[in-house]
Simulated assay, not measured.
Amino acid sequence: MSLWPVYTGSSEPHDGIDALPAPPPWRSFDGGPALPPPSEQDEVPGGIHRAETYQPTSKTVQLVNAALYLRRPLLVTGPPGSGKSSLPFAVARELRLGGVLRWNITSRTAVTDGLYQYDPLSRLYAAGKTGVRADGPRPAAPDREETAIEDHLRLGPLGTALLPYDRPRVLLIDEIDKGDLDLPNDLLHVLEEGRYEIPELVRAARTHPVAEVMVADSEQRVAVRHGEVGCRAFPFVVLTSNGEREFPPAFLRRCVRLELRQPLREQLEDIVRAHLGPLDERDHALVDAFLHRGSAGELATDQLLNAIYLTRTSGLDAESREELAGALMPYLGRAAETWDVDDV
């Protein structure tokens, strides 16, 4: 029997992912042989705290479950500090899906960077040290040219997420709007098909059909056959965007889209409570100041958390605390830099 919602937003770990119904016929994947799920240990520093303190809205819970059921990527847009990059950690912890694979996008990022990294120069150097020629016949170890490839190749976060795990991995593709204009379209084929090839291993497959390749988030090696990788359980992919650019329609229609907004007072207080415990009178005053300043320009929730933490621990008098809090909550947008919040 299926379970809705699979992800509840409670932050209490459970095995509800096993009750996920079969995918739609057009999103069924048959990669293999099956790999056991990774351990629950989170490899990203601070990831467990982010997971435990994340406060999802009811809309977030609904759309996360839609992405899980449909086996579609979740495109999350919103202002800085709205919790976009914390969401995958919360889902991974509650559903016991192991550590979050993270791929940070820059202007120079290509889709192959997320799939795998291959260092031909280190392989050439190793071949020279062992007396093996990398460009032709070699006197020792007849298959060494091919088998050496896997020693200089490692799967990236996207490539690891698409391995044939029994349970879906969680992949965060952070700030995709920073990437090259072609990156979303380049991702389309991989995310649609749930598989990819490693050309270096494909070329070597005639004499070396199975390669033991290192994954992105550990020293573990997995068998890649004939240079092809395909998933069994489509990963839960979260793509974050600050809303700074438009994406191609073909890309957007293949994603479940979630837009996050700045939290309201009650949500802010819940966030502070989750991170720092009960609020006192001074904390409520800082929340008031944050909301007042936020009406004049863009602020991030972590600015409020920083201000409350320091005013609690600094031992400053009331006037100094207010001055420090104001300095910790500057506007993020240039348009508000010269604004006086008291005039708003």
Score class of each variant (00 low, 15 high):
94 E>S: 10
92 A>W: 00
257 R>E: 06
137 P>A: 14
319 E>D: 15
32 G>E: 06
104 N>E: 06
323 E>V: 14
26 W>R: 08
65 N>M: 14
337 E>R: 05
202 V>E: 14
41 Q>H: 15
166 D>R: 14
123 R>C: 08
270 D>W: 07
292 H>F: 04
317 D>S: 02
25 P>E: 03
188 L>D: 10
331 Y>H: 05
169 R>T: 08
307 A>T: 11
333 G>W: 03
232 R>Y: 06
160 T>V: 07
234 F>S: 11
307 A>R: 02
261 R>V: 01
221 R>A: 04
328 L>T: 07
192 E>W: 09
209 P>E: 11
116 Y>L: 02
19 A>V: 09
2 S>P: 15
10 S>P: 01
320 S>K: 09
302 D>Y: 10
221 R>Y: 03
150 E>M: 03
212 E>L: 14
203 R>M: 05
209 P>D: 08
231 C>E: 00
12 E>P: 01
87 L>C: 08
203 R>Y: 01
63 L>I: 04
93 R>K: 01
329 M>E: 00
81 G>D: 03
143 D>W: 08
75 L>Y: 13
215 V>E: 03
75 L>W: 11
214 M>R: 12
108 R>D: 12
9 G>C: 06
286 L>V: 09
40 E>D: 11
120 P>F: 08
96 R>Y: 00
65 N>T: 10
339 W>K: 12
7 Y>D: 10
93 R>W: 08
178 K>Q: 10
223 A>M: 04
237 V>R: 07
158 L>W: 02
207 T>Q: 14
307 A>W: 00
221 R>C: 09
79 P>N: 10
49 H>Q: 10
337 E>G: 05
197 E>L: 15
36 P>F: 15
55 Q>R: 14
157 P>I: 06
231 C>T: 11
34 A>Q: 07
324 L>T: 12
259 E>S: 08
59 K>R: 13
257 R>Y: 02
308 I>H: 09
146 E>F: 05
50 R>A: 13
245 R>V: 15
290 F>C: 12
205 A>H: 11
34 A>L: 15
116 Y>T: 07
253 R>M: 06
42 D>C: 09
183 L>I: 07
23 P>M: 00
219 E>K: 04
37 P>W: 01
277 G>C: 12
136 G>T: 12
120 P>C: 05
259 E>R: 11
338 T>V: 06
